[in-house]
Each structure stands twice: as structure tokens, then as C-alpha cells.
Write a protein that binds this DNA or RNA. Sequence first.
DNA 1: GCGTTTGTACTCGGATATACTGTGTCCGAGTACTGCTGG
DNA 2: CCAGCAGTACTCGGACACAGTATATCCGAGTACAAACGC
Lengths: 154, 154
Amino acid sequence: MKFSQGVEWGLHCAVLLAQTPAGTALSRRALADRYGLPEAYLAKHLRALVAAGILHAVSGPNGGYQLGKPAAEISALDVLDAVEGAASPFVCQEIRQQGTSALPPEQCTRPCAIAVVMAQAHLAWRASLRGVTVADLVERLPEAVRTKTRGEFS
Amino acid sequence: MKFSQGVEWGLHCAVLLAQTPAGTALSRRALADRYGLPEAYLAKHLRALVAAGILHAVSGPNGGYQLGKPAAEISALDVLDAVEGAASPFVCQEIRQQGTSALPPEQCTRPCAIAVVMAQAHLAWRASLRGVTVADLVERLPEAVRTKTRGEFS
DNA sequence: GCGTTTGTACTCGGATATACTGTGTCCGAGTACTGCTGG
DNA sequence: CCAGCAGTACTCGGACACAGTATATCCGAGTACAAACGC
């Protein structure tokens, strides 16, 4: 089980865009070069972020990507859901109702205990990520890094 | 991002084995038939559980699998780690140190904030699963199901 | 000199190939029981 | 009748194909600017 690299890329891009002056857009080329990423592949993930409303894409010269809403309203979970999909990694196949010793439906009124446990863990994971916004991530950057970044867009 | 089906299979098998009288072993054939699973593929996952010490395999006639330790000492996390591997699904590639605006190493003494957030979420997820044992899962089964299962091994 | 038009260069978006992990399967090694054989 | 032995049937374990998704890429659609042209 492994996340797509797009998760890290999307989060870094969002954090970077949150530090740019309002109204400025960064082209995908600029983002890819900055982090040494394959531009065309990065595009696929950025497109997913645009579809989720996290980023806003502007066409034409001087176009590019900018945040689609305030950084404080974008959680890490939002980015992850946009890139990886919000579906639970565990999908209960109800094998208790299959095979030679299948349980009859009337004994399966309550959800499978195993699925419940996995769902709870999934919720805990999501809750942890939901509590952190892109604005928080910017705050947690070292001051030196923030000033360096700010200088590049002055 | 999706878990292997082996996670569900392994958990169900562990819960079932926890309900069998001590000393009895269930063959992989019996397990596969009971849940309608592909026997040969189930074998691959059971082998992983054996390697992790969660199950114990017995060869020969009347052989099969049994729990490798008390059900109360096997957490859901143990099973998941055995099947999926314990590695974090998020692997930080340190892209902040790559590309045209790469940060110098002296500004990267603290771990990347994004990696920290992801690691915390991962820990929350693992903690949730670590708190539930196979014995707990047996307890959470409906009484009717437990008696039905018990009857099949009398 | 000014407005219009055309061209260009730059942007994002969707459709298209390749690599790797999960899925599924097969055959071989080992072991305990069972039946037979010889005493 | 009993002990030893060989055969057999059943078990798990590792090596081998197939499929789906992540990875990586290319080309086309759209837009704003800029320069050129006509008035």
C-alpha cells in the first residue's frame, strides 16, 4: 500500500501557492522546475486539484495555477482526497456471507465487526489530516524559508 | 490507494481460528471453502501471517493453520502489517531539496512539515488498529454467530 | 496618431504508452496415517 | 497376533503468469498579449 507521489507534490504546490501574493499565478512549468518534477505528470495531479476546487487554473500567457479558496479553508485531507480519491482503502467484501458457511442475511443486520474496526481507523486517520490546513503548514515552515520564498515573488 | 484483499481474509481467518478449540488446525482448503476464496491465493497471504508469527502452520494430514499466539495478543494492526507491510503509505521524497529553488541542507534540519503531518495521521491510524485484538473481534460477533461457529467444530 | 486585425507565444486539458505491484495459479517438498507383509 | 515397512493421501511452501493502477508522456484547444496594418 503506497500513496501516489502526487500527494506530496500537491501539498507542496498548495503550500507554495499560499505564500504568493494574491492574484499571482504560477505556471505548471514554474512549479515543476522549482521542485524538479516531471512537468507533464505533475499536470495530471494539478488537474485533479483543479477539479476539486482546491486550485484555480488560468489559461494563456501570465496564466497558471492559484489557490481556489483561502489557504485556511484547505485541509490536508482535501488535497489527499483530490489526488488519491476519498474512498476507504479497505473495502469489505462481506465474505462472511459467502462460501460454504455463509451467514444468512438475518444474522448480518449489524455491519461486520472487522469492517467497523477498519472504518474507525480510517476515520481517525482522516480526522488527523482534516485538522491541519494549508495555512497551518505555511506557519510551520521555518521563518528563514518563508522569507526566502517571499523574496522570490517580490 | 487500496488495501489488498488479503487484509480482510487474514482478519476473518484469524477471528475464526480464535474460535476453534485449542489444538485443532484448519486446512487452507477448509478456510478457502468456508469463505468462498481462491485457495491458492489465500495461501500466499496465510504464509505471510505465518512468517509474522500470527499463525502457525502444521504439515501433513490433519494439519493446517492455528493461531501462533493467544488471540488477545494479536492486534488488528499485527495482521495488517503482516499482509500489507508496516511501511508508511506516504514516503517523503524531500522535493524541497530538489529543483531550481532547492533549500540548502542547513535549512532542512527539521523534518518537512508535510511529512510530519502525514506521519501523525499514520500514527493515529495505527494506534486505532493497535487497540483492537482478535479476541475483541470475537467478542463483538453476535452471540448467534458464535454459537453457530462453535457448533461446527464440536 | 489611433483603432482594428492578425499572428504568436504561452497556458492548461485530455488522450495515449510503459513499469510496477496486486491478483491468481500451478507444481514440488514434507509428513502422518494406513494398509500390507513378514516373523 | 504383532512389529516393521512401504505406500498413499493430505498438508504447506515457493516459483511462475496475468491484470489493474501508478507513472510518464505527447499533442491539441484556448487565451492574452503584441506587433503590424489600414484609416
